[in-house]
């Protein structure tokens, strides 16, 4: 069996935005390396302005990297013919003001789709994104959320092998988010690769196999979603029958007291709980929120690192 080419591969890609008039120069991406394997759901995280969209736009061939290169489905970035197998949803998507079904046919036709299949597929994808009742409405009159659904439909028209979504759920209501999640899951079941950027971890952690965290154009974390969220430094000890004031930083809820401590001291704390006549319900590694991950990432500007447990 030959090795499958990566679905998406960045090879020390850098991008500088230069302003024409001032000599200002902004490094949006800095030696960015990433390999997204075929068939995975990959979450691309980072605070606003981290360079996520920049990386995606380079992959789509809208821009050229200042240095470095990359491949998409085994072909260099910017190759038009490869894009036939790629679905792309831009951040704040904008579409032409036409009837949605015709619009979808137009975008499908740009990918060399044709014939009766085109109309059928348009109906299919409208169904998939829950716009089947709006098929005859003009996309110019859509709300942001509906537009985003239409954008998603447009990206799905060609039944892409690789689906690149730039903040796909930013304008969606909770119900629509669930829909997108289901859509992404079923796409993976069909063997597709999904690369989605977001600044919301709650979205990503539910569906992504792996995530990368980008900060100021640098890759700062890369690993399985669960690993990223699991702090290696802290544990939460849930106890019963102890007084809240006996432990600094303890919180109580549902009749239990939970104490968060560094791993190095967890043994001592557990012993104290027992000494005080308490009972230990559970000891769990602390799950961090993305905010914490971001904060950590911003605090230490160490070179890109990879979590060892890949």
């Amino acid at each position: 069996m030959t090795e499958m080419p990566a679905a998406l591969e960045f090879d020390s890609v850098s991008k500088e935005y230069r302003s024409v008039f001032s000599r200002q120069c902004l490094r949006a991406l800095d030696g960015f390396d990433l390999r997204v394997e075929a068939g995975e759901i990959f979450g691309f995280l980072g605070p606003n302005g981290a360079g996520k969209s920049t990386a995606i736009h380079i992959a789509m061939g809208f821009m050229r990297p200042t240095s470095g290169q990359g491949h998409m489905l085994g072909r260099p970035f910017g190759d038009a013919w490869t894009r036939r197998h790629v679905g792309f949803l831009a951040e704040n998507v904008a579409l032409y003001h036409r009837r949605v079904d015709r619009l979808l046919c137009f975008y499908g036709a740009l990918n060399r789709m044709g014939g009766t299949r085109l109309g059928e597929r348009a109906r299919e994808v409208l169904q998939m994104v829950g716009l089947q009742d709006q098929a005859k409405r003009n996309a110019g009159k859509f709300s942001r959320g509906m537009l985003q659904r239409a954008g998603l439909a447009q990206a799905l028209m060609n039944d892409p092998k690789l689906l690149i979504l730039d903040e796909p759920t930013s304008a969606l209501d909770p119900l629509a988010r669930v829909m997108v999640r289901e859509l992404i899951r079923s796409a993976r079941e069909a063997g597709k690769t999904i690369f989605l950027s977001s600044h919301l971890l709650s979205e990503v952690e539910l569906i992504c196999d792996r995530v990368a965290v980008l900060h100021r154009g640098k890759l700062v974390r890369l690993g399985r979603t669960a690993d990223l969220l699991q702090s290696t430094e802290q544990t939460e000890i849930v106890t019963r029958g102890v007084a809240l004031q006996d432990f600094a930083g303890a919180v109580t809820h549902d009749g239990v007291v939970s104490i968060t401590v560094p791993i190095s001291t967890q043994r001592g704390v557990m012993q104290r709980v027992w000494e005080l006549g308490g009972e230990i319900v559970s000891v769990n590694p602390v799950r961090r929120s993305l905010e914490q991950v971001f904060l950590e990432v911003t605090a230490d500007s160490q070179p890109p690192q990879t979590d060892g447990r890949l």
Binding site: M60, F62, A80, R83, A94, Y107, L110, N111, R112, Q154
Partner: peptide
């Protein structure tokens, strides 16, 4: 973007 993201 939506246009240039196609095979164009």
């Amino acid at each position: 973007l939506a246009v240039l993201s196609k095979a164009v």
